[in-house]
Every structure is written in C-alpha cells, then in structure tokens.
Design a protein around this nucleic acid. Structure first.
Lengths: 348, 348
DNA sequence: CCGGGATCTGCAAGCGCTTGCAGATGCCGG
DNA sequence: CCGGCATCTGCAAGCGCTTGCAGATCCCGG
C-alpha cells in the first residue's frame, strides 16, 4: 500500500525507480516502439508502484498539442446542447481529448466571444454548433487558423453536418396537410434570433415548400417566433390564438416550443388534437411521455459524428476534403396530431 | 491589420516588440504590481498589436495550478446535470477556470473512475455531484489529496451543499396527505441505484416521516424504483397499477419520472388528477407546461454555489471549516394534484 | 571473424510561461 | 551631498514532459 501522495510522482521518480532515463519512461509508458520488452515491463512496474500518471499539462506543452476540443454552443443546460455535449464528450474522451464548452449567448454574447476568441491556444479544434455569427465574425473566427467543423449550418470552407431541416419541415408539414389541415402555423426562432442560425430559415423554407406542394397558400400571420423554449412556444401560441383566423395545426421548430404551445392552447379551451394538431422537432426525452408527435433527430449521434469528423481532421496532415453530411430525421406519430376538424377549413 | 497568424505570438515576441524582458511582459499583462505605468502601457500596446494571448498550458505548467475544476456526475445530457454544469461553468469561467466533466455511469462506471482517477494532475479541485461511490471508493478518491466538495450528499471531511431532501419529500407527501390521500406511492431511485446516492434514501425517509405525521401506515408495495428517467417512471407506474390496492397519489423523486408515470396512468384510463394525483421534484423546464405539481429546486443556483465553495477552498491556504449547506425547496402546485377521490380510501 | 544495419537507450534542447532573487534606478530625509 | 529604502526590471532556474539525434549493443550474413 502506497503512502498518501501529498506530492505525486513525476516522470523522473519513475526513471530513477526503473533505472532508465526519463526519455525511456516516456516512450515505454506511451507504447512507442523501440523499447525493449523487458525495459518496458520494468518501467510499467515502477510507474504502477509509484502510482504515476503523466501530467497532461506538461505533456501538452512539450507535445505541442492541447489535447482539447472546443465546443461552441449558444448555451449549456438546454436539452439539445446538453445531448450534443454528451455525444461530443464521449468520442473526445476516448481519443484522449478534453472538451471545453464556450457559450455565445451569455454576457456579451457572440460579440464578446469573437472579440476575445477565448479558444485560442487552448484547443486543437473547434466544433461550432449553431454559431450565431455574422459573416465578418465568422471570418474572424476562421482567421485564427484553428481547425473547425460546424453543426447545424453549413459554411463555405468548413466541414460540417446538419439534419436536413428543409426535409424535416416538409415531413412535418406534409404530415399535417395529409391530415387535411389547411391553416398550419409555424413556430420558429425569430428571424433575428441568434440561436441555430440557418436552422430556422431552413425549416421556414421547408414549411413553405410543403404548403406549396399541398396547394396551400402561405399566410405570414401564421408564422411566429418561439425562441426554442417552452416559454417562447407559449407566447407564440398566445399570439396565434388571437389571430383573426387561427390555425388548426401548429408545426413547432422544437419539442420544447411545441409543449409550451400545447399548454396555452389547452388552457384556452382547445382540445389537442381534436381542435388543434401539434407537431414538434427533436423527440425530446419527455416527448414520448406527453404524447407529442414529432420529427425525431439523433442529437447524441450528431455530437459523436461531428467529434469524429473533427478528430479525423486533426489527425490528417493534409487538409481533407470539405464534407457536408446531412443526417436523417424520422416522423414519429403520437397523439397530438389528428385529422383537421370538419367544417373548420376556412379561407383558401 | 495583422497578418494571418499561422503561428501566433509568444511572450518573447511581445517582449522584443516592447523592448522589455519576458518577465516584465508577464507581470505587466497580468496586472501585477511593480510595473511602471509607462512600461505597462508599452507592453499592452505591443501585445495588442501582435494579438498576443498567453498560452494557458504554459502558464499552468509554470504556475503550478491547472486552472481547471472537475465535475463528477453520473452522466451529462440529463436535465439535472446539464443545468448543474451550466451553473458551475458560469462561475468557474469568470474565475478563469475550465471545467472538465467526468462521468461515472458510462462504460466501466464508478469503478473505472476510481481505478483510473482520471482527474489527477488535471484539475485543482473536484465537485462530486451525486457520486455513486461506496466508502472504500470514496476514500480512494479523497486520498488523492485533490480538494473537493460534494453536491447532493454529505460526507465527512468534505464540504458540500444539498437540498433538504427529507424536507422536500415531507413537503410533497404532506401536500398529498392534506388533500386527503391515504395510499401514496413513492417512485424513487432503486436502493442499489448508483444515481444520486443518498438522495433517494433521504427522500424515502421524508416520505415515511410524512406518512407517519399524517397517521398513515407504510406499505412497501407502494415504493418502487424509477431510475430518475421518464422510462423508469413509466415502468414504476405500470407496477403500481397492477398492485392489489393501487395508490391514489404518486410522489416521484424527479419530474421526469413523474411525467413518465402520468403517461402510463392516463394510458390505463386513469384521469390525472381526478383519479390519481402526481407530484414530482425539480421543476423541470417543461413541468410548468405539462401542469405538473412539483417541489422546485434551483439547480443552476446549486451549481453556482458549489463552484464558489470550491473556489474559496482553493483560494484559502489554510483548510477552511467544513460547511454543509442545505438549500431550500418550494412547493409549486399546478394541475396534477387534487383531493383524493371519494370512497377511494381503502385499507388503513 | 568482421562490417553494417537494426534495435535500444540516453542526452539535452526545447515547449512558453512564472517567479525568486538581485541589480539598477530614483527619491527622500538628514 | 550621501545613505538607505522603495520601486522597477532582468536574469535564470525551473514547471514536467517530448523528441531529434547520436551513441551503444546486438545480430546476421559474407
């Protein structure tokens, strides 16, 4: 049993114990070639005896690699980003990388992030998730030369993945039109919403396309921002309810907004799905349990994939080809969507 | 406009540009005393011109402090831990610390964590959140000498905070008994559940105390594990429904379990709250929007507080007094609890 | 028995900072 | 006008590793 390690062993202690040089210890412990098996065994034994672990800070300095990935997200603590983080973290950890979160919606927001570029010299690569940057800000970030990949929105020069938001929106709205709905509202992020960048735009486009496919007209009064939160969804629904000619179905850009919206509708005496159909996007952990029809996406899987992409990029010396992957979504029908109420299809 | 910084400036570049020594640059930029104002200005200007930022890795090595906090949680990506993370991260960031997550429920679980002690030499301090360690494992972690604080369960020798789970459970069950409920089920973590450690135990005790206070008898058949997930809550409810004498009210140890339970009950034709009252703990983001009555706790606030506690501990040279803070909870009555159905109060 | 390549190991120079110590300078009161 | 102290600055030794290079050893075929 070893003593309490008030000051823990360094590589030098191990070298002394194994009667080799520190260089050999370093090579032996990291599994590098050109170390005699017997030597390696001796080193490993000494290291174990001393409970030695290499100081990552020193390794990083000497090795020139930070062994850390940055994850830029609007905020932590929201369902989507928490799942994303766990996916990224899982893959990064296995590869020996730490992952450092950077938020762009805290105090100062994206502007502060771009002014400080806090990831400089701390990470080897960056995952930009729904980065709310304008073109100039984006260019500033790119100019740091830090390898990066993007999630949720594609940018020239940067590999990335995203779900096909246009397709997802079409899937959702198509489900509603196939149920006979004619007045279909969209609760999205606001146009100037920093969150999820092009995501709301794509979903809006998909929404319009689906309406067009079904021969339905587009009514701007049925499009309201929802801020990707239950509160925002609730406010949006409030607004829709007071419209001169309210919708019979709502497509919300996230399940959290959908849940907020449903609540308001029910409070106002509308039955879901009899009077109002509601569909979301995400398949949030609780969605199955509130019966919400939704477009499912695999957020953890996206996190894992984007981390892999970044790690590959870091491994390959030569700049790899730019890749833009579209991840699939799936319609999950539950109990918040139903055929349009009869006689409730007004203006056309 | 500076050139593209393929290789970024080091402290030596700045020293050269400002015509001072690297030592002076270091002192000037960090705001240390004994630097002439004019010198400091010159250094700051040079640093700005070169877009210099100190390499944290080098600072850490030289400074002897890792400037990182470890956050040990069962898993990321769950509501509670995501919120916690964001609270910890906010405070740590302001103080210049990174926060590294460590999960204890992934592959290998707590055992792997204790065997590897992956936080060694990487963090200056550790937040143990609902650490699922037995006494021996806990001792091993403590023996590393890394300063630590705990969240969710108190341990001798370690400062920490927690919500008063006994009180919270009493509050919840008291609410139900005051509504006339007599058969009240508890959905908690399982006894051998790694998650949240003493939390389920405390809540169980509070549950029993509240029953006793109301003069109600305790029925072990009404206590089932729920694993702190919606799925677990659903399974638990399934079990309760098939009990010979089912409950009229359910107290779930988390809102996610409550939501899962409600769904199953409703699927089985029970009306909530007319036939079955349900109360949770947490006040999850969506709880307000599904009308769930709950015991609210401020998770982000707990994260902020525990981070402060740890930072204070790191700052003070002398070992500070051990502190055990109990954080308040609050009953939030919504629409899932109601008076016990009449004529439905059987065995007593 | 010898030369040369393959293997193994050690030396020492960093990686980019921080910091204790000492030297240089400037200022004050006596 | 001088000694002494306070203020400012630089020197250089680390922090604990990694890695290019060269020396030492060993083995084999010729």
């Amino acid at each position: 049993m070893a003593e309490v390690a008030l000051v823990s062993a360094t590589i030098e202690d191990v070298a002394r114990a194994a009667e080799v040089s520190v260089a050999t210890v370093s090579r032996a412990l990291r599994g590098l070639p050109n170390v005699a098996p017997s030597t390696r065994a001796r080193v490993v034994a000494a290291a174990a005896e001393l409970e030695y672990v290499a100081d990552p800070t020193a390794s990083r300095l000497a090795g020139g690699r930070r062994m850390a990935l940055g994850l830029v997200v609007p905020l932590l603590g929201q369902w989507y980003y928490a799942k994303l983080f766990s996916g990224v973290e899982a893959v990064a950890t296995v590869a020996g990388y730490d992952v450092l979160p950077f938020t762009t919606s805290g105090p100062g927001g994206a502007e502060r992030f771009v002014r400080r570029l806090p990831f400089r010299k701390r990470v080897d690569g960056l995952v930009l998730a729904d980065a709310p940057f304008d073109a100039e800000q984006f260019a500033t970030v790119v100019r740091t030369g830090v390898p990066m990949v993007s999630l949720g929105a594609f940018a020239e020069g940067v590999s990335g993945i995203a779900v096909d938001n246009i397709a997802a929106a079409r899937l959702a709205v198509g489900h509603l039109t196939s149920l006979g709905h004619v007045r279909i509202a969209l609760i999205g992020g606001s146009p100037d919403d920093p969150f999820r960048f092009s995501v709301p735009v794509d979903r809006f486009n998909g929404y319009q396309q689906a309406l067009a496919s079904a021969g339905l007209s587009f009514d701007p009064a049925l499009v309201v921002p929802g801020n990707f939160s239950p509160e925002g969804g609730a406010e949006a629904m409030q607004q829709l309810l007071s419209a001169p000619s309210p919708p019979t179905a709502v497509f919300a850009g996230s399940d959290e907004m959908a849940i907020g919206a449903m609540q308001v509708a029910r409070d106002a005496g509308w039955r879901v799905p009899e009077d109002l159909s509601v569909i979301g996007i995400d398949d949030h952990d609780v969605s199955a349990y509130v019966g919400l029809t939704t477009i499912r996406q695999d957020v953890i899987g996206q996190g894992e994939r984007i981390a892999q992409l970044l790690l590959e990029r870091l491994r390959s010396k030569d700049e790899p080809d730019e890749v833009h992957e579209l991840h699939p979504t799936r319609l999950v029908v539950r109990r918040t969507t139903a055929p349009a109420p009869v006689g409730a299809s007004p203006s056309r």
